[in-house]
Structure formats: structure tokens, C-alpha cells
């Protein structure tokens, strides 16, 4: 565990908890894409199947359980909570998220390190995570005005990506044989998807204005 990895995990954790806390306290999920949240629930469910087969550390297992629990809680709130579900921007959140799932599954069947059930699902989760933010970014563009919490959520997620890339560079330099092309390329694609959002986020922060994305 290096400092970049820890910072990445903590911003990732903060992003999910900020979102869950927002939904729980103000009983509103306005501006949040259910499609993206469902994709993340699928990402965690397929990636963390190894909690049953391998043990790395208490930290690792605990974090996996928190990510699984919080992502499924968010989906539950948005779909079934009687107050929260009414605040969901159903008409605006129209991204066909299944069109992301199938190509990712196909790609994982074709490009992977080992052809085993767990390994293919693990690879699938990497590909899916790379694009899972897309419905959320589309929703942000459509509603244009973003409340602070939704902006912070995407900002923290982007921070998590940035720290993970630093973590990979660090591990590549310090650990022998640390080469993971699939993880790196998927991670890089994911980080690039945030670049556009970050540009507008910093612009609004610099001008001390409410974040507005161009149509």
C-alpha cells in the first residue's frame, strides 16, 4: 500500500459516501443517474467475487464490503424508497446502459489474462467501470446546472482515478513484474472521460460561479 493508492481509495470511498449521505439526508436523488449507479453495482458485484476465494487483507475485504453495500444501497434508494424515487430525473436519464454492458462482456471474453470464470468477470468489471460514468455525464450535460454535491461526487471520482494512475506508476517503478496492461488501459480510458468534466469544474471554481456545462 502506497500513499497514492490510499489517497485513491479514500477519494473513491468519499465519493460514494457523499452520494449516499446526500440521498439519505435530503431524500433526493435529483441529478444522479440511476443508470450509472446500476453499472457501478454490477462492476463491484462482478469484481469482488474473489472475496470468497482469496484473502489479501482485512482492509481489502472491508473496503470491498463497503463498496458493495453502499452501491446497492444507492440503487435501492433510487428505485424503491418512496420519497427518493420521486425525485429521480427519469425522463432525462435515458442512456441505454445495456449497450455498454454487452460490448464490455464481449471484450472481456476476447481480451483477458486468463480464461477462467472469475478472471473474465474481473476483466469485464474493469471495462465496465471505464465507461460506467457516461450516463452520469450525459445527465449532467442535459440538466446543465449541477448542485454542489453531484459536482463533488464526480470530482471525487475523478480524483480517485488520478490517484490510481499515480499508484500504478509508483508500483511499476518499485515492484518487480508489476505490469497490468488491461488494468492500465481501462483505467486510462476512464480517467480521460473525466477530463472534459474537470475542465468545466475548474473553470467554474476559478470564476467562483455555479458549475454549468455547455449543451
Amino acid at each position: 500500500m502506497n500513499i497514492f493508492r490510499l489517497a485513491g481509495d479514500m477519494t473513491h470511498l468519499a465519493s460514494v459516501l457523499v452520494l449516499l449521505l446526500k440521498i439519505h439526508t435530503i431524500k433526493s436523488c435529483a441529478g444522479v443517474s440511476l443508470k450509472t449507479q446500476e453499472l457501478y453495482a454490477i462492476v463491484f458485484a462482478t469484481r469482488y467475487l474473489d472475496i470468497f476465494t482469496s484473502f489479501y487483507s482485512i482492509y481489502n475485504t472491508l473496503m470491498k464490503l463497503i463498496f458493495l453495500g453502499s452501491s446497492f444501497s444507492i440503487v435501492w434508494y433510487m428505485r424503491y424508497h418512496k420519497t427518493v424515487r420521486r425525485t429521480y430525473d427519469r425522463e432525462q436519464d435515458t442512456f441505454r446502459h445495456w449497450f455498454l454492458v454487452l460490448p464490455c462482456l464481449l471484450l472481456a471474453l476476447l481480451i483477458h489474462e486468463k480464461f477462467t470464470f472469475l478472471e473474465v468477470l474481473w476483466t469485464f468489471s474493469l471495462y465496465l467501470e471505464a465507461v460506467a460514468i457516461l450516463p452520469q455525464l450525459v445527465l449532467l450535460q442535459r440538466t446543465r446546472n449541477i448542485d454542489n454535491l453531484t459536482g463533488q461526487y464526480v470530482f471525487l471520482l475523478g480524483g480517485y482515478r488520478g490517484f490510481y494512475i499515480l499508484n500504478w506508476i509508483y508500483r511499476y517503478l518499485t515492484e518487480p513484474h508489476f505490469v497490468h496492461w488491461i488494468t492500465w488501459i481501462a483505467g486510462l480510458v476512464q480517467t480521460l472521460l473525466y477530463a472534459d468534466f474537470f475542465y468545466y469544474y475548474f473553470q467554474s471554481w476559478k470564476n467562483n460561479k455555479k458549475l454549468q456545462l455547455p449543451a
Binding site: R5, D9, S54, E113, R171, T183
Partner: peptide
């Protein structure tokens, strides 16, 4: 040789 350590990340 392929390292398995990438799987220790979240």
C-alpha cells in the same frame, strides 16, 4: 511470469 498483485487493488 505474470504477477497476480493487480488483484489486490480495489
Amino acid at each position: 511470469y505474470k504477477s497476480e498483485t493487480g488483484h489486490d487493488e480495489l
